[in-house]
Structure formats: structure tokens, C-alpha cells
Design a binder for these strands. Structure first.
Length: 234
DNA sequence: CCCTGATTCGC
DNA sequence: GCGAATCAGG
């Protein structure tokens, strides 16, 4: 894959939005996380708070005694001339995580949302103009900054009628049958929920399915093929 | 272990 | 210019 203009634009937009290099790489496809980071640096994109850089100015590590050590000892470089790591101005109200990720926290009885700060000194606003598109709005710009969208509160969903009376994952304990009914991901997936056979994870009926007498080798059926080709290799 | 970004350096 | 390898922190 090559870095076409479109892909570079997408990289810039997502990088500015706060997406991680992995997310960008996955979104673009055909490139690795390292490729995204390397490209971002080559483009001169603003570096973002890095776990490594947070500490800053550490004792130099002793070079590892490996056979393939081809790295010269990195000289203690003077830190970047930047006036410290600048936090992204557009998400200062929240904590570290990016504002793009919707917090999945159900807020049962949270009253009025915290009022957004109205004072903007020299803050640059980024306004989304569609998927992956952003425009800058600096203090000198004529158009007034667009106020951030009001935070959306997520309310807990009511249990769908299909699952209302069924045994859900949260209902499991060692006294009910954990035999799965249906398939995970399906809307009505649940568990058997009958009284479990004491000492077993299933009810008597499902124990009969789960535990079968060992047959002599010569009478066994050949094992069925694995559904997805066996264990994952990574 | 997993994740993250930064950096280096052979290609 | 590119990106795998590596480093280093959380």
C-alpha cells in the first residue's frame, strides 16, 4: 500500500482527532501501526502524549548484551525545544481518554451536565465536517467557534422481551444450569437456567448431553472438523 | 501479557 | 520515504 493523498488526509484527520496509531492503521488497512507512526512523524504531525515521554529524562539504559545489538548508545539528547507537551485544547475538560470514545457509563441519576467552559484564550477549535474531516478555527477566524455538542447520556437499555425471562450471563451461578441456548451474539441468547445437577454446571438433562460414557476407541466416531480451522495463530 | 508512541536504521 | 525492529512507559 502506498500513501496516497486520501490516505494521508485520513491519517492526519484521525491523528488530530486522537485516534491511536493502531486504530488508524486498522482503518486504513494495509499498513501497520508502525507505518502509521512513522508516517505521522515524517509528516511532522504533532506528537501526542506518549507513555514513554511522560517521565522524560530517565537514566540511560544499559545496552543489552545481545548478539545482534547494532544500535549505538543513544546520546542523551536535549529535549525538544517545545514548551512542554501541550495537551490537546479541545478535550481539556475530560480526562486522558479521547473525547471521541463514547463513555459507556450509564448515568442513572446524574443531573445537569457540567457546563462547558466558555472562556477561550487562544484555543483552536476543531469542527468535524463529516467522517474524517475537520477544519480548524483559530482565534483570528471570523466565524465563531462552534460550541461542542452537548454530551450524550447513555441510559441502560431495557431488556428486550426475548430475553426478559431468560437466564442471562449475569444470572449464572453454581446452582443453575449454564447450558447455552442459542449462540452468543444472537438477541435471544441465554442459558438453560434449570436447577443444576449438584456438583455439575448443568442440569440433569444437559449433563446427559455433556457427559457421555467413554466408548472403546474402535467404536468412536472420527472427530468432526474444527469449525474455524483450529487455534488462532498470531 | 496487553496496550501505547518514539526512535533507529536498513532498505 | 518507508516501515520493521526495538525501546520504554502504562
Amino acid at each position: 500500500m502506498s500513501w496516497t493523498d486520501e490516505r494521508i488526509d485520513r491519517l492526519k484527520a484521525m491523528w488530530a482527532e486522537g485516534a491511536t496509531a493502531s486504530q488508524i492503521a486498522e482503518d486504513l488497512g494495509g499498513v501497520s501501526r508502525n507505518a502509521v507512526i512513522g508516517k505521522a512523524h515524517r509528516l511532522g504531525l504533532e506528537s501526542r502524549p506518549s507513555p514513554v515521554k511522560a517521565g522524560e529524562e530517565k537514566a540511560k539504559k544499559a545496552p543489552k548484551a545481545t548478539a545482534k545489538a547494532h544500535k549505538p548508545a543513544p546520546p542523551p539528547k536535549a529535549a525538544a525545544a517545545k514548551p512542554a507537551a501541550t495537551p490537546a485544547p479541545w478535550d481539556d475538560a475530560d480526562d486522558s481518554e479521547t473525547a471521541s470514545k463514547a463513555a459507556a457509563t450509564p448515568a442513572p441519576a446524574s443531573p445537569a451536565p457540567a457546563p462547558q467552559r466558555a472562556k477561550e484564550g487562544s484555543t483552536i477549535q476543531y469542527r468535524s465536517v463529516g467522517p474524517g474531516g475537520f477544519i480548524r478555527q483559530g482565534p483570528g477566524d471570523t466565524q465563531a467557534p462552534i460550541p461542542p455538542a452537548p454530551p450524550r447520556r447513555l441510559v441502560p437499555a431495557k431488556p428486550s422481551p426475548e430475553v426478559a425471562d431468560k437466564t442471562s450471563l449475569l444470572d449464572l451461578n453454581d446452582r443453575v444450569c449454564r447450558w447455552p441456548m442459542g449462540h452468543p451474539g444472537e438477541p435471544d441468547f441465554h442459558f438453560c437456567g434449570q436447577a443444576a445437577n449438584p456438583g455439575y454446571p448443568y442440569c440433569v438433562a444437559h449433563c446427559g448431553v455433556a457427559y457421555q460414557a467413554q466408548l472403546p476407541r474402535r467404536d468412536r466416531r472420527p472427530p468432526p472438523p474444527l469449525p474455524f480451522g483450529g487455534p488462532r495463530v498470531r
